[in-house]
Computed example of a mutant assay.
Amino acid sequence: MTELKTITIIKPDDWHVHVRDGKILEKVIKYTAQFYKRAIIMPNLEDPITNCVKSLAYRNRILNSIKFNSTFQPLMTCYLTPFTTSKELEYGFYKKIFVAAKLYLKSSTTNSENGIKNINDINHILQCMEDISMPLLIHGEDNDKNIDIYDRESEFIKNILEPLRKKFSKLKIILEHITTKDAVEYVKKHDEQYLSATITPHHLMLNRNDMFLKGIQPHLYCLPILKKRTHQQALRQAVSNGDKHFFLGSDTAPHLNKNKIHCFGRPGIFNAPSSLLCYITVFEELNALKHFQAFCSENGPNFYNMPINTETVTLVKKPFKILNKINIGKKKIIPFLSGKTLHWSMKT
């Protein structure tokens, strides 16, 4: 059999992206804009995106940071707080300022201190979102300090997500960056019209052993944390089967190196320079390239009721060396798999 040398697919979208702000935004946005037509922008800045005015301003900063001719579209989300109003959400959704709202449980991950302590406090918001078919994006971890960090996702499904879905059965929910067999099985059991999930390249490529290989690997620390191999295999099987419940969401999350190697290192993996190439590497390993376009370019838009892109991208079987670092003045960001070589490149 002749080895596949190129593959052309509909231009993908990334349904989970952190681009931060200021100098970091100016340096990292080009990597997402290079590979993807659209991207869901996470709202958890230090000053979170909690209303329409902030969202429009942030969107403009993102677009102004792209220094080359691009048709990239940032898709903005609203950070839910105890003070979010149904009126703000409804206006933002109908005016296409927001495409979705993001639920962070308080203190569950980076810049989530303004999040929700008790989900029942926002039942009126969730009712509004169900009524207008506005998607809810969820960082699905129960961060009760008595729950083992490796069990936070499965406990969230049992303790929070299942009761939530019983109350709001028609609420469109994306369970983001899933990491466990439990999440795969739960999502597959439900109608993909109302419940879907994103999967990151790093959770497909790695498991928790990798995080402790030859000592602690701070650049592989993320939330949800890498899980054991059986969970990684469940994620790989989910994408290799072409299930419509699952689609691309890289959760690329840049942090300055000094904050990653700090004694209280921050969670987040910056994979934007290579995310699409990592995904195709996994799909090739799984002999599942026939499902690659659906995962990258079709399942996400179908869930969000958005048009599928008309542009295409071509990936070539050609070595691609991932850059070692990105300089931010005198500081730096270390990308995922820095310095390593992948076997696929993007045709320019």
Rank of each mutant, 00 (worst) to 15 (best):
47 D>F: 09
83 F>P: 09
59 R>K: 12
97 I>Y: 00
86 S>G: 12
44 N>K: 03
100 A>P: 11
89 L>H: 01
67 K>Q: 13
57 A>F: 15
39 A>C: 02
39 A>Y: 00
69 N>A: 12
89 L>D: 01
31 Y>W: 06
78 C>W: 03
95 K>I: 00
33 A>T: 04
49 I>F: 01
85 T>H: 13
48 P>S: 13
22 G>R: 05
38 R>Y: 01
101 A>P: 03
91 Y>V: 09
61 R>N: 15
28 V>C: 06
32 T>D: 00
41 I>Y: 00
84 T>A: 12
66 I>N: 00
36 Y>S: 04
22 G>K: 13
37 K>D: 14
26 E>K: 13
71 T>L: 08
65 S>G: 02
71 T>C: 12
94 Y>A: 07
75 L>E: 11
63 L>G: 04
45 L>A: 03
102 K>T: 11
50 T>P: 02
104 Y>D: 01
51 N>D: 15
104 Y>K: 01
89 L>R: 00
41 I>S: 00
93 F>R: 12
106 K>A: 14
83 F>M: 15
110 T>K: 03
103 L>A: 13
68 F>A: 10
35 F>G: 13
41 I>E: 00
104 Y>A: 01
49 I>P: 01
35 F>T: 12
64 N>C: 03
73 Q>C: 10
43 P>F: 11
57 A>S: 15
56 L>A: 14
108 S>A: 15
57 A>I: 14
113 E>Q: 15
76 M>K: 05
39 A>G: 04
107 S>F: 14
86 S>P: 04
36 Y>F: 14
64 N>Y: 07
28 V>R: 05
25 L>Y: 07
41 I>D: 00
46 E>D: 08
102 K>I: 08
100 A>L: 06
35 F>Y: 15
110 T>W: 03
60 N>G: 06
72 F>V: 05
97 I>D: 02
98 F>N: 02
84 T>G: 11
106 K>E: 15
103 L>D: 07
46 E>Q: 09
31 Y>E: 02
69 N>I: 11
99 V>S: 04
86 S>V: 14
58 Y>N: 02
53 V>K: 12
76 M>T: 07
110 T>A: 10
26 E>I: 02
54 K>T: 06
42 M>P: 03
34 Q>E: 12
56 L>K: 14
66 I>W: 00
29 I>R: 00
50 T>H: 02
59 R>G: 04
82 P>W: 13
40 I>H: 03
75 L>K: 15
64 N>S: 05
105 L>V: 07
96 K>C: 07
95 K>V: 00
55 S>N: 03
112 S>N: 08
67 K>C: 10
66 I>S: 01
75 L>S: 10
67 K>S: 14
110 T>Q: 02
48 P>E: 07
90 E>H: 07
101 A>C: 15
59 R>V: 01
90 E>G: 08
96 K>S: 15
43 P>C: 08
108 S>K: 12
60 N>I: 02
52 C>W: 04
96 K>W: 06
58 Y>W: 09
69 N>D: 14
80 L>G: 00
98 F>M: 07
48 P>N: 12
45 L>G: 01
100 A>T: 06
44 N>H: 04
78 C>E: 08
102 K>S: 08
103 L>N: 05
95 K>W: 01
63 L>C: 09
